[in-house]
Each structure stands twice: as structure tokens, then as C-alpha cells.
Design a protein around this nucleic acid. Sequence first.
DNA 1: CAGGAATATAACCACAGAGGCATATTGGGG
DNA 2: CCCCAATATGCCTCTGTGGTTATATTCCTG
Lengths: 116, 116
Amino acid sequence: MDRLWSALSETHRRRILDLLRDRPCSVTELVEALGLAQPAVSKHLRVLREAGLVRVRIEAQRRIYSVDPAGIRALDDWLTPYRRLWNERLDALGWHLDATDDDPGHRNAHHDHGRI
Amino acid sequence: MDRLWSALSETHRRRILDLLRDRPCSVTELVEALGLAQPAVSKHLRVLREAGLVRVRIEAQRRIYSVDPAGIRALDDWLTPYRRLWNERLDALGWHLDATDDDPGHRNAHHDHGRI
DNA sequence: CAGGAATATAACCACAGAGGCATATTGGGG
DNA sequence: CCCCAATATGCCTCTGTGGTTATATTCCTG
């Protein structure tokens, strides 16, 4: 878990994920997109790989990297218990009940946060 | 956004969030729970606050900290475009459709991941 | 109003990690 | 088989940051 977070804490690595979300890329492509030296990018990719956030497919001398859903999944799992929390608070405070809400039934739940 | 991730990259800070998710706590309570020195905890709390992850309520000399949904919300938003991705991959590969799935209707859904 | 409890801030130290350059490695093409 | 292209790894440096101790601040209590 620690690896996951520390991998994601870096701007360039999040940028890499953004790029890979679009389409799988070779290292060279990423180097060009990021404006970093190639070794730096390779290192970032290593970190991302060890965190379960990207995968490699070897294709001749090219390494084609793509997002590994496992890592994202882990992050989502971590987030789950908190999501409940912010749903409660949102309607408790009468905030923006926008359309991005996945779970429409929840906002009507009787929120008795009795322990506070 | 950078602040958010760097705040979350630290184990103790994530632990603090875990604790606060249960109930709001004073600094001293957190100090005891974490086994860290008080100044260290105060610094972590500062970082979490500036990242929009916790809030403070002043109560006499006590500072009562609690989770600020805003930060969690931001993280969730970041995750959104990726969630689509791993949904596609999961059923494309016929992976573990375990019981942790929040959305029971989904696993039976006819998964036409037409765009990949 | 003095004393102490609760918390924040400052100064300092130590270590992790991000970046750069040089080099090793691997695979393909002439 | 040799050379080049693509990528990884090693080594070094430097900045960022987490931890500690000491001190400032704030507010209740006797």
C-alpha cells in the first residue's frame, strides 16, 4: 500500500498515468511528452510498475507501457470507507448535490451521526 | 492537487485520516494513538489541513480535528476517469468478480466494452 | 494573576528520493 | 557479426521532508 501512495505522490508519475490512460506508450513517447531525460522516465516507470500501476509489454526493443487496473482498483478500495463519509456530510450541509453522484438512494438516508 | 497527493503519501497521515474517520479527535488523542511526539503530529495535521483533508474546531485549548470531505472528494474526482478503465479491463479479462463489488447489478450487466 | 495543560512553531539533523550523466543491456538490421 | 536504437541501471548530488528537542502561544483554573 505504501508503494502505491508514494508512487502517486509524484507529479510526473501522475502525468504518465494520464498519458497512458489515453493509449499505451513506449518509453520514448513518454520522454517526449514529459520533457524529462530518458533515464528519469525509466525510473518513474519502474516505480509505477512496482506499485502495480502500469504494465509492460515487450515489443522488439520497445517497451510498451499501459495502465494496470490493479493499482487504481486498490486506490479505489482505500477510498471506499471515506466515500460514505462525504456523502453524509454533503447533504448534511446542503451542498452541491450534483449529478456525478453514483448512488442516488443514499442521499435520502436518515443521517443520524449520533456520535458527534 | 499536488498538496493533496503529497499529504496522502505519508503513512502516519493516512493513519490519522483512518482514526478521524471513526470520530473527531483532539491532537493529544492522536498523539497517543500514533505513538509519535506531539510536534510531529501537529505538523502532520497542518499538512492535512492545508491539503483540505481535515478541519479544525477550536474548543477551549483543544483543537478537535475531523475529516474534511473536500479533500476526499477531490481524490475521488481524480480517480473517476480511471475507474472507467478498470471496469472495462476487469470483465474483459474475466477477473475476480468478488463480493466487494458495491454495485451488484453491474456484474450481470452485458459488458459491451465496445471502445477498446 | 500565576500555573499548567494543550497545541503550534522554530531550529536542527538525517535520510529518502528525484534528476542528471555515464554506462550496461538487449534486440534488429545491414 | 557489427552497429545502432531503445531501454534499464549505477552513481552522484541536492532538495524536500519527517522526526526530535526546545520554545512560544493560548486559554482554563485555582
